[in-house]
Design a protein around this nucleic acid. Structure first.
Length: 372
DNA sequence: TCTGGGGTCCTAGGACCC
DNA sequence: TCTGGGGTCCTAGGACCC
């Protein structure tokens, strides 16, 4: 194998938080979900994204710790910087996950990548006190699955030849990209394992899941994935949203809702400014008390990162959505981003389009300001 | 007993242009 | 009188991921 990839995942992000003076899960009040759980707590069936109330029934004696996002970001940065010092080709996959292409890292191929994986684990532990699990494989798809095999603090190496033995027995849901819906649909079609998926005819999968998804499913079931490790990317959107402590009504709780709305717009504006972007599409998102979601957005001509402008456009969006039902969440989103100072002037930048524009301006003397 | 926040990508229909 | 496609942009919703 002359090419190798690796996925690393962070664990025990809450390791250093002292555990005194925090409520037990059974005494916890408020809405929300578990962000993560220690391995002992997981024994009780508690895990990420589970509602607090459900978790409290499963493990009432668990201690609830607050989430300190500044601290998490700090450790996340340390984690990624440590890896990048050893192997520079790193793709970001959220706070605690990365893909690494170490094809060209000196010594990377020793013991099939195990030596490098151990070095990365040790470096991360020395710098942060955190453990992580690492999967080594010929592509991102397999590396991601491999990283789950030996948790916590494990290393797992998967070769192409291991497909039948190690990958095919797994449930389809273990494939990155097959979520609850696709998993359900596959189960209804009596396809449960990746091996069963691999035996399906490509055309049959396409008939049931569409051209793109069907073909993709067939590829991944055979362990094939040639997507590159992408080290840099521009953001597509920036958003802020909040779930209220109690459901709010647009009329009855107008003042409260208005204040939250303005605050969210301010936060989006601040995020854009801090990161040096402007946006041309502003949108809102709401979640009703029955959990249905509605979104509206509007694209305007001039790019902006101004709180008042965003608030105005978002306000127009809000007018276009039904507001009879009570709300549990409100969000504001900015999209169609451009780096500040690099906003495109003409949508069409072909010479022809520019000549036409110039002709249109020449024909209408009142339109000269269009040039600026 | 309900179910966070911040993202990406895909689909599909309609408008509009060539 | 009726009939074309292709391409891009915009909008709404939904699946999925960490």
């Amino acid at each position: 194998m002359d090419e190798a990839l690796l996925a690393a995942q962070g664990e025990r992000a809450l390791r250093f938080i002292p555990v005194t003076d925090f409520p037990l899960l059974k005494d916890y009040v408020g809405r929300g979900v578990i962000t993560t759980a220690t391995y002992p707590a997981r024994q009780f069936g508690v895990g990420s994204a589970m509602g607090m109330m459900k978790a409290a029934r499963l493990c009432p004696q668990a201690i609830v710790l607050p989430v300190d996002f500044d601290e998490i970001r700090k450790y996340s940065r340390l984690f990624k910087n440590t890896i990048a010092e050893i192997a520079p080709l790193v793709q970001d996959r959220g706070v605690d996950e990365v893909y690494i292409d170490f094809t060209d890292v000196p010594g990377g191929q020793r013991e099939g990548g195990r030596v490098l994986a151990r070095l990365i684990q040790k470096s991360i532990f020395d710098k942060t006190g955190l453990t992580c699990s690492i999967g080594v494989a010929p592509n991102k798809l397999l590396a991601k699955m491999a990283s789950e095999f030996n948790k916590p603090n494990g290393i797992s190496i998967v070769h192409e030849a291991d497909l039948q033995e190690k990958i095919w027995p797994l449930n389809c849901r273990k494939i990155n990209g097959i979520g609850p819906k696709a998993g359900e649909k596959l189960a209804r079609l009596n396809i449960h394992t990746i091996g069963e998926l691999a035996t399906q005819d490509r055309q049959w999968l396409i008939a049931h899941f569409g051209k793109s998804t069907g073909a993709w499913m067939h590829e991944v079931a055979w362990g094939r994935d040639n997507s590159p490790v992408v080290t840099e990317s521009e953001p597509v959107s920036m958003s802020r949203e909040t779930t209220f402590e109690r459901d709010l009504h647009a009329v009855r709780d107008r003042a409260e809702l208005g204040a939250i709305f303005t605050r969210l717009c301010g936060q989006v504006a601040a995020d854009l400014q801090r990161k040096g972007y402007v946006a041309k599409t502003i949108g809102i998102k709401l979640r009703y008390d029955d959990f249905r979601i509605a979104t509206r957005d509007q694209t305007v001509q001039a790019y902006t990162a101004d709180a008042q402008t965003i608030r105005k456009i978002a306000g127009l969006c809000l007018k276009r959505v039904p507001l009879e039902q009570r709300l549990r969440l409100l969000g504001v989103r900015a999209a169609t981003l451009a780096k500040i100072g690099e906003t495109p002037v003409f949508k069409e930048n072909s010479a022809l389009a520019q000549i036409k524009s110039a002709q249109a301006v020449a024909a209408d003397p009142m339109a000269t300001d269009q040039l600026f």
